[in-house]
Simulated assay, not measured.
Amino acid sequence: MKKFPLLLCLVYMITTSFYPASSENFSHPTVSVKEIKLSPKKNFSPQNPAEEIYKELQFTDEKLNFEVFEKAFLGFQNLKKSRKLVPSAKLLSICDFSLSSNRKRLWVIDLDEKKVLFNTLVAHGKGTGEEFATNFSNTEDSHQSSLGFYITEQAYNGDNGYSMRLFGMDKGYNDAALERCIVMHGANYVSEDFIRSEKRLGRSWGCPAVSREMAQPIIDTIKNQTCLFIYYPDQNYLASSEWLKNAEKTDPILGSPKQNMATN
């Protein structure tokens, strides 16, 4: 008979060993999930090179909007990948035509040195707007500015003095620049004196005109195959420009970047 209670105890111990733990003690899986929770994705992706460069830039007059710089930098990189620019290209010029023409809205940036080389006034076309740019065109005699990416060409002396030809890279938006004689040049109406007199900057016939005194130093710096981006928040343009696509264009057969060089 003494063995019977012993047997009952043994059975009790075996059966109760399979009971679930209490809710308090069963919280370990939840704690584990919290511990292995990933940080936001941006902390695990490579550093944004546009952001790294932008942080180093010293803006003394007007500060360039980061979103504009980021778009310009993306296009610059895509132009290099497509071999429209030489691999060693490092200069990026940006006109932000969303700003008042009374502000210094042209920046020339050395991306390697992370340095702003120039920040100055720049005119838009008389058909584009008064103080503010609103309308853009790729059409002859529209006297309007054209949006998009350009590759700078050679300098020359013309009717407007020291000037620089521009090759438009966005089909339907600025690829008629050479035919329209859209160039960078100096102009007397691009000055602080003109702004004080007329309450706005003077206007060109579609060219990104700068002041007479700044024309030669800027042109000599950015001529011969550097990148110029004329920005305006036109959603049709921003959505359609091939240079603002994040995915790299590849050859469907070779799987490598297309090598269709721009011709002068």
Rank of each mutant, 00 (worst) to 15 (best):
E242R: 10
D220C: 09
A247P: 02
P257T: 01
F229H: 03
M261P: 00
Q235N: 12
N246H: 10
I218E: 11
N246P: 03
A262K: 14
S241P: 03
I230E: 09
I218M: 13
Y232P: 06
W243R: 05
C227V: 03
T221C: 11
S241Y: 01
T226E: 10
I230G: 05
P252G: 04
E242N: 06
D234I: 05
Y232T: 06
Y232M: 11
A262Y: 10
T263C: 00
K249V: 11
F229M: 15
Q259T: 04
N264E: 15
P233D: 11
Y232N: 09
I230Q: 12
W243Y: 15
A262L: 13
N236H: 06
I218C: 10
S240T: 14
P257R: 01
W243K: 08
N224C: 02
G255P: 03
I230L: 10
I253W: 08
Q225W: 13
Y231M: 09
T226L: 00
K258S: 04
Q259N: 12
Y231L: 09
S240R: 04
N260D: 14
D220V: 13
P233M: 09
M261S: 08
A262P: 12
I218L: 11
D251Y: 13
F229L: 03
Q259G: 06
G255L: 04
T250A: 06
E248Y: 13
N260Y: 02
N224S: 09
C227A: 09
D251F: 11
Q235H: 08
Y231V: 05
S256I: 10
T250I: 15
N260W: 08
Q225R: 10
I219L: 14
Q225T: 08
S241V: 03
Y231E: 11
D251N: 15
Q235M: 08
I253V: 13
E242S: 03
A262E: 07
W243F: 14
Y231T: 08
S241G: 00
Y231K: 02
L228K: 00
